[in-house]
């Protein structure tokens, strides 16, 4: 377990020193959400109705930007091979790296979302629920995304391919994330089941993601 902790600490330290990845994702999120009202016009009712959907979809796209970085630099400089020869199973290495991605991208994006909600006239009762569903749902983005990141490691300019592979996997998270928010406003009875399914999706990805990503990494390292 000490090796896992060491790796997590190093990945967080690198994310802070490199800095760029977090800033890019947050800036992209801000820009997409800020541009939508410009395109749709100043209809406040329309904006507040579609706000949860916009905030979720823009968050998925912003997180997608930084997915390829989960394994890329370690693969290129040879660190990943050395980690594969460590005592820590490759599945755990993949899990730690996805966790570091969630801590440095998922959480900042989820915390930025309520600020952007103001731009879209999001219903005042929805702010707490929005952050809650995003904090619960974003682990699935990092852990499912790590599968795509591992699969496209050796593909030159694999960014678009990564989006094609990973976005369909995000559909359940998107559906239940939005259902949870809208039901909190309209039909409170349906809120808890939606949130529980969202949690289940994240927990499932926590198990499946690292196993699939490690299998893909083994193929990439051949």
């Amino acid at each position: 377990m000490r090796a896992a902790w060491t790796l997590l600490k190093r990945d967080l330290q690198l994310a802070v020193r490199e800095g760029g990845a977090i800033g890019t994702a947050l800036g992209f999120y801000l820009l997409v959400v800020a541009m939508l009202p410009l395109g749709l016009g100043p209809d406040l009712n329309l904006l507040s109705r579609i706000a949860p959907g916009i905030l979720w979809i823009a968050l998925l796209l912003a997180a997608l930007l930084s997915l390829s970085r989960i394994f890329e630099t370690d693969f290129e400089d040879g660190s990943l091979e050395l980690m594969a020869l460590g005592e820590l199973p490759l599945e755990l290495v993949a899990a730690i790296k996805a966790l570091a991605h969630w801590l440095t991208t998922g959480i900042p994006l989820a915390l930025l979302a309520p600020l952007l909600g103001i731009l879209l006239n999001l219903d005042i009762g929805a702010y707490g629920v929005l952050v809650l569903t995003m904090l619960v749902g974003t682990p699935a983005i990092s852990f499912l995304g790590s599968i795509g990141a591992a699969l496209t490691l050796r593909a030159r300019r694999g960014g678009l391919l990564l989006a094609l592979l990973v976005l369909p996997l995000y559909v359940p998270t998107l559906i239940y994330g939005i259902t949870a928010i809208s039901s909190a406003l309209v039909a409170p009875d349906a809120f808890v089941p939606s949130l529980l399914i969202l949690t289940a999706l994240s927990l499932g990805s926590l198990v499946l993601g690292p196993i699939a990503a490690a299998a893909a990494l083994r193929i990439q390292m051949q």
Partner: peptide, 29 residues
């Protein structure tokens, strides 16, 4: 085994000592 390939497994954003500290703790937890 220790494997030394063509790539060095060195992180340019960490200092020399930090690189060594990471590998020491990771390889001999």
């Amino acid at each position: 085994a220790h494997f030394v390939g063509h790539a060095n497994g060195v992180k340019s954003n960490l200092t020399v000592t930090e690189n060594l500290e990471f590998w020491a703790a990771f390889l001999a937890p």
